[in-house]
Structure formats: structure tokens, C-alpha cells
Amino acid sequence: MGAGHAHRLHRPGRSPVHELPPHTKLVAVLGFVVVVVSTPREAVWAFALYALLLAGVAGAARVPAGFLLKRLLIEVPFVAFALLMPFVVPGERTELLGVPLSVPGLWGAWNVLAKGTLGVAASVLLAATTDLRALLLGLQRLRMPPLLVQIASFMIRYGDVVTDEMRRMSVARRSRGFEARGVRHWGVLAGSAGALFIRSYERGERVHLAMVSRGYTGTLPVLDETPATRAEWARAAALPLAALLICLICLLGRTP
């Protein structure tokens, strides 16, 4: 992958987390998120422990806290949703600083905020420690249909090309004095979108022809088939297993 694809998402490094095979990391993150989502929301301390686990992983991966927090901002629209819940959910009411709030709404807001944030943080750590190509290889090793992996890999490879093309169109529009101010200008923008589609589609055809002329038969050869060792699986499984342990303890603690 060229320099343009490095994105701000991936932080190259040589930490133990970076060096785990990608498919073990994918399974670990998915397992962790499933455990987090299945944890009852009343177990507040369990979520604190999950956050500590993720902080531990971030520390091991040498991902700075600022980077992680900045990437968490993607969640903001749903934070707005969560913050409104205490006001709109019916049910038992409580007073906080003179404002009536709904108790189920507060629990709901906590639920979405805690689980959503942990999920985003886990995904951010995965993307930060795994480069795009490795991520796709990981998906392939996890038996995702090869065609889907190929589509995803072409999307990743040409995503920046297409986005750049869109930016060049925008520069061209503005350098001719165009400024989109309202609905009246949608025609011009839609014209650009249409042109972008035609260019993308034609590029797809050219890419296909170039590939066929190099012997493409519909499948891409897998070059580096390196299965994960048992030790690597164990290291990757540490995160979801620790989370599962916490979850089980809090479930057992609730039963009596």
C-alpha cells in the first residue's frame, strides 16, 4: 500500500499487540465486544474493569491516550441520543439538581454510553495496531467469502483515489467561482457526483482489464499463509477471556 493509504487510523509499531496475527486480533475484539454487550448494565464496576483492560492493551500497544480519546469523538451523535434519554423515557422519576429525570432513562443512557464507548475503543485499538492489508488478510483467514474480501480490498485501495478525485472536482468548481450555498446549487453537485460515479466505474473496468492482462482469473492468490501459533492465540484471547471472567463473576454475584 502506498503512503496515501496509511491514514491516521493506523499507528505503525512493533509492540506485542502489533505483532499478533490479524485474525486472532479480530476474534479477540469481537469476543470482547460480545461480552461487553451481554454484561448487565447494573454491574457498573464491571465496565470500569473492562475500561482498565482496554487501557492495558493500549499501554501494551503504545497507543497514546490522546489518540484514543480523539478517535472516540466519532460517537458524539449517539452521546446526544443517550443524554436525551433521561428526559424522554417514561417511568420512575428522580430529582437531580431540581431537574426531574427518569430512572430507566438514566440506566439506558449509561448502558449506551458505556457499551458504545467500550466498543468504539476496542475497534479503534484494532485499527490502530493492524494495517489495512493485514486486516483484510485476517478477514480472509476467518473464512469471510473471498469475493467480499476482494471487494473490500478494492474499496480500500481505491477509496483515496476516488476521494481525491472528488476533492479535485471541488477545487475545480471553486476555482471557477462556484460556491454551494443552497438547494439551487444541488444540480451542480449532483452533476459532480454523477461524473464521479462514471469515473469510478470506468476505472473499475480499466483495473479489471489490467488485471486480466496479468493473468487474473477471478481469485487472488494468497501469498503469506502464516497460521497463528497456539501462544499467539493465547495472547490474543487474554482480553476476551479476562472480560468473560469479569462478566461471569458479576453474573454469579447477582444470582443470590
Binding site: 478494492f154 483515489v161 476521494t163 466505474y201 473496468e205 479489471h208
Partner: peptide, 13 residues
């Protein structure tokens, strides 16, 4: 055969 490059480019679009 064209599925992967074409669908990939359309996804990028």
C-alpha cells in the same frame, strides 16, 4: 470476473 474491481470501485464511490 469483473465483480471484485467494479463492486470495489462502486463501494469506494
Amino acid at each position: 470476473q469483473r465483480t471484485a474491481p467494479l463492486a470495489g470501485l462502486v463501494a469506494a464511490f
